[in-house]
Design a protein around this nucleic acid. Structure first.
Lengths: 188, 188, 188, 188
DNA sequence: AATGAATGAGTCTTCATTCAT
DNA sequence: GATGAATGAAGACTCATTCAT
């Protein structure tokens, strides 16, 4: 039931109303409970699904990629896979980012676990980046990955918070890449 | 009622329980309503208060600051003022960051407004940074400011989400400054 | 559907769950309704069945009984027939006793009616007991029968309630007989 | 909230409806929850209260009793204390008996514990009865006490089940005493 | 100004029952 | 005859809010 995503996106986990979700999906109140044990259960399913979509999408891109050359391109590609999913299922994405950044004990663990399919390729990329001397090695790849995803989330939040004023969706991958790799400072 | 902060930090706006807040403040259930019209009202008051504290604290620092020299130092000082407040009233800070990142229509406006005392000096700093050619000029100072605050929030979230594992609070100002100014890439 | 018995025994009429009963019987949720109109209907069928089993079993014993001599022996035999059924279908018995003792208007009538096959021979025994001057005549045989069955139920309840600690099943017929005929007092 | 007793008596624990109980007590739906955490909680409170009433009442009687002579009289007095409470608060009694005889794991333990104020004096009586050689010693006083209370319950159930037809309330103490001490058999 | 009992709308959740396949 | 997805009424429980004291 993927109208749930839209609803969670708009209201968050606590604020969500199972009844409205059901009706929004063209179903009766109780029907949702034939598929999910509880509101939290449904929520987690939505989150997990969102993660899987991103990961799967990225794998597709990777397969088709002849290029897969330098660090910047790889990261960009990851972000574009992300963006692609996000465009198609923006509601999912909003829930996801929202809850990821609200660090509640109940959901934090699950979200971290759900993230793993996305983290895995990312960590691979970052490792090779460290080897090639392109990025700092004083932070572990895990930390660098967290920062990367966090930064991306940040720009999405900015986008949604400003109701699309800035930045526009398309510009986000490039913005994130640039910012991630060299901050806002000018190169000497 | 500043035990409210701790509670909002732990449970969010929706999850918060007015009764627990009252009791936690050594008052009876109904007493809160002599001071605040509603839960949302109390919540916004907490947010506003948190913002004012950061801004006031920064002003104090600025007054005492003889140095205030280069861009990096100024930003660092801002972050340290922020951190100082955060340490003393970590609960406030958590609510604030949490809600700032959840971009709900109801609270977004208020938070943006509350942020202005912090944004003002920051924008000043960034403007001078652009003039001196230290930072990119293809983004407006408002945007740059949002990115700066967002980045700081990000590391705080990381800190709280990992239950203090990484990064430690003290290291955050430096981390943010570095990342903000040059990303994770190595200088050529 | 005789796994229903086990379920009703464990959860009572209200607490029972038609779905679990179905699954426990290797059937799908809806199939039960091809045989029984409602939960109450199924329940009553289970009760009735339990009664019939006891009565039939007693008839078997009676047929085989050459002896059938004195009052005590007859009562003991009845109780042993009862116990025999109870052992084989303890679940049925538990439902039965439980509901018999909860005297709800909805079920009381049915249970009384279902009891008749058991009551009939019992009343015969008691009548002859009264004639032979072995038992009190100031109470009608119907009352004496109720007391007898109630006493037996009591010891079963004790057995189940104590999770088998005391009394043990085998000892119940003798205990009941003794208690029924002479109470806990010592003979003069 | 002692209209709860009437309701529990009529519908049992599972069948009870908190809403109706509230309204029946002249309160709003939620008010009950200011006093009891849950339906079960309220139920247990009702049970406990019923037990305390019986025990207190018996203590009163005991104090006033000059006689307190032979076994039969003592038991009779206990049953009459019981009956007195039962008359005044028949609803309580019905709940109590009903649930005591339904031996559900959830309630059995609590009921046993709630019974202790009643059991204590009873056990004292039975002990002295064993010493004076008036009752059998092959069963422990605890067992004898269970049988005694069970028997009393039995006649109450009979009374309620028959809607007062037989036995009448007043006759129960004597009936129970007689039956308990010498069964239905005639003395030799 | 403080209290806390009372409220009752709002929500999640359960589950007997139906019915198209 | 069997299925199991869908239903929706029903009920336990929560909690922000009010108000008489």
């Amino acid at each position: 039931m993927l109208s749930a995503a839209r609803h969670f996106a708009a209201h968050g986990l606590d604020g969500a109303n199972i009844n409205e979700i059901s009706v929004g999906a063209g179903l009766a109140r109780g029907t949702v409970y034939n598929y999910f044990d509880s509101k939290l259960d449904l929520f987690l399913a939505v989150i997990e699904d969102a993660c899987l979509r991103v990961a799967r999408r990225y794998k597709d891109r990777e397969a088709n990629a002849h290029s897969a050359v330098d660090l910047r391109s790889k990261l960009l590609q990851l972000l574009q896979a992300d963006l692609e999913v996000l465009r198609e299922e923006e509601d999912f994405a909003r829930v996801f980012v929202r809850e990821a950044l609200s660090f509640k004990p109940e959901t934090f663990a699950v979200i971290q676990k759900s993230l793993s399919p996305v983290l895995e390729p990312l960590i691979g990329i970052l490792k090779s980046g460290q080897k090639s001397g392109e990025i700092r090695t004083d932070l572990s790849v895990e930390m660098l990955a967290q920062i990367f995803l966090g930064t991306a989330s940040l720009f999405y939040v900015q986008h949604w918070g400003s109701e699309g004023a800035w930045p526009e969706l398309e510009s986000i991958p490039a913005l994130v890449c640039e910012y991630y790799l060299q901050g806002v400072g000018l190169k000497a």
